[in-house]
C-alpha cells in the first residue's frame, strides 16, 4: 500500500523497485567519486604554493559547497519527493549560518 509503484503484480513491482534502487545507487556512486575528486582538488589547491590565497580561499569554499550539495541531494536523498519541509528547514539553517558568519567576520572587528 505504501508502494507508489504498485502494478498489481508484486513480483514485477519488486523487480522494478530493485532496478530503480540500483540506478539510484549508481548515481550515488558517481556522486561519491566526484566528491573525492573535489576533495583532492581542494587539498591540491592548498598544497600548491603558487596560488594566491585570494584565489584559493573562495575556490575551496565553492568546492565545499558543491560537495555538501552532493551529500544532501544524493546521499541524504533530498532530491526525492516528500523532502519539501526538510529542504525548507535546512535552507533556513543555512540562511542563519550565512547571517552569523557575515556578522562575525565583519562587525566583530576588535
Amino acid at each position: 500500500m505504501a508502494n507508489q509503484t504498485n502494478s498489481g503484480n508484486e513480483r514485477v513491482d519488486l523487480a522494478y523497485r530493485r532496478r530503480k534502487n540500483a540506478e539510484e545507487m549508481r548515481h550515488q556512486m558517481i556522486a561519491f567519486v566526484l566528491m573525492i575528486l573535489l576533495t583532492l582538488i581542494a587539498f591540491a589547491a592548498v598544497g600548491y604554493e603558487e596560488f594566491s590565497h585570494w584565489f584559493v580561499v573562495p575556490f575551496i569554499l565553492l568546492l565545499a559547497a558543491v560537495q555538501v550539495a552532493f551529500q544532501l541531494y544524493y546521499f541524504m536523498h533530498m532530491s526525492h519527493k516528500g523532502h519539501e519541509f526538510p529542504a525548507m528547514f535546512i535552507y533556513g539553517g543555512v540562511a542563519v549560518m550565512l547571517l552569523l558568519v557575515w556578522a562575525f567576520t565583519t562587525v566583530v572587528w576588535w
Partner: peptide
Amino acid sequence: WLFLGGETVLF
C-alpha cells in the same frame, strides 16, 4: 530533518 536544521545553526 528539523533537528538537523537546528544543528546547522549550532555548528
